[in-house]
Write a protein that binds this DNA or RNA. Structure first.
Lengths: 196, 196
DNA sequence: GTCTATAAATTGATAGAC
DNA sequence: GTCTATCAATTTATAGAC
């Protein structure tokens, strides 16, 4: 999304990544052919391999960018306030909103984890654990200050993240739900789930 | 699971279905080969087609059985009590427990929906809507009686179901979580999310 | 950096012997 | 109802011309 050609349009490498996101989200990684990706990018099948090493390396790049972005969203949300209640509200809100606003990338991030190579899966796994740890830390601080009541911190952290993650399974932009509406709902539910 | 041979063991058809569950849950539908399924069932590649029409018909059978089972679980949970609060607690508990106890089937049910044929997907979709409607009905009755406080009933119903559904993404039997522990946690969170 | 052409392997499914 | 053998199509990836 950052590279630009002289005429201001996306590079061929970027167009292929965007096409891969479309295809992987729509049909899944294994059911997507490199021909499909090339065709969506308006190129021949061979052009894929000029810009990317393999089909899996396209998945790795999409997955890495997605995890990096999601981690940044939740980390920044955690830093917006000193109030643990408001912090949890903001984290759940922004995490759910990101998944709604990036539901195609989110679907790839969440559902194609197993399709990565062992090495790539191990690397991506560190991002997942950081996201989980960030949520657990917010709950722990709230409990320590006495403003949150959470008896199972890891389990509740998983549950709060599940609200955002699971929406990529069914959310479609332009449907009867807006990302903001869902994010607000999840944020309110999160406060009820955790406040003392 | 119900057919038996003269010696009491599962039929070849059943063994192939069990093998398909294993393989689809582990690698995904598209990445699973019919050779893999046959091999897990201890049979030749051709034997698959003596007992099943196609790879997709195996997925349809697994998906139909899974959805039927999940709908029965949540319907029976809804009928165990007249108290709306206890009803929601029981529904969330049993729905999450079923997903933990059947996490492989649950993964197929939830993640391979798009791999079904159009006709099969339409049929399975009716089960999904019944599950969602059952949860919405429980919330509506509790709000009408004044014992639950839920301002977005469809959204909250989705969120309650998400707790169970999303655990199939990461839950593994024998890990640090038990199904009962998760189900209890989700049930308690559900009460906090909905009680007046 | 793009293309056409194709290699090399794998796939879902079938034929036909036993 | 099981097998071996195989078909026909499709797949990822590469070779080589422009």
């Amino acid at each position: 999304m950052t590279e630009l050609t002289a005429n201001g349009g996306p590079t061929a490498r970027e167009r292929l990544l965007d096409a891969a996101v479309e295809a992987f989200a729509e049909k899944g990684f294994a059911a997507t052919t490199t021909r499909d990706i090339a065709s969506r990018a308006g190129m021949s099948p061979a052009a894929v391999y000029v810009h990317h090493d393999s089909k899996e390396s396209l998945l790795y790049r999409v997955s890495l960018d997605g995890h990096t972005h999601a981690l940044r969203i939740i980390t920044e949300a955690a830093a917006t306030t000193d109030s643990p209640t408001e912090r949890v509200r903001q984290m759940v809100h922004d995490f759910s909103l990101w998944h709604a606003d990036h539901s195609r990338v989110g679907r790839i991030v969440q559902y194609e984890y197993h399709a990565l190579t062992d090495e790539h899966r191990a690397e991506i796994g560190t991002y997942r654990r950081k996201i989980e740890q960030t949520m657990q830390n917010a709950l722990t601080e709230g409990v320590d200050q006495g403003v949150l009541a959470v008896d199972d911190i890891p389990g509740t952290a998983f549950a709060l993240l599940s609200l955002g993650i699971d929406l990529v399974r069914w959310f479609e932009p332009g449907g009867s739900w807006t990302g903001e509406g869902l994010a607000d709902l999840h944020a309110r539910l999160a406060v009820r789930m955790t406040s003392a």
